[in-house]
Amino acid sequence: MRALIEIAPGVLLCCCLAVAGDAVAAWAGLPVPGAALGLLAYLGWLLSGRGIGWSRRGAALLLRWIGALIVPALVGLQAFAGVLGGAVPAVVAVLVTTTLVTALATALIYRFVGGGR
């Protein structure tokens, strides 16, 4: 029971911010996901340091289970078997090449702008 009381406020706050973000995106006619706007709002609140410590436990719980929340979307891959079809080798080639290129570009840019020192 006590655990629930400690966790519920943070979970509820994140839920409210996600819903509010969706509402703002819809109102402004922006195609961006509302959750991203909710994240910005929560971040601003956290950084302002105005006693929002009560939300941490619940938010951390959501983060710990974020992997499980992706599972339904991933199972939906089945519906795309037709699109993937014979393109699997090409897709794997794109994934491997661009992942290495991206990692290298990020590391080099960081070094170039002097972040390494």
Binding site: G10, V11, C14, C15, L17, A18, V19, G21, D22, P33, G34, A35, A36, G38, L39, L40, A41, Y42, L43, L46, L47, R56, A59, A60, L62, L63, W65, I66, A68, L69, I70, V71, P72, A73, G76
Partner: peptide, 23 residues
């Protein structure tokens, strides 16, 4: 898909919670 709608929905609040990582 229909049965797991609550989990899909919770993904939004979980994305909001990622603010903790930046902070």
């Amino acid at each position: 898909d229909a049965a797991t709608r609550p989990l899909r929905w919770l993904l939004g609040p979980a994305v909001v919670a990622l603010a903790l990582v930046i902070e």
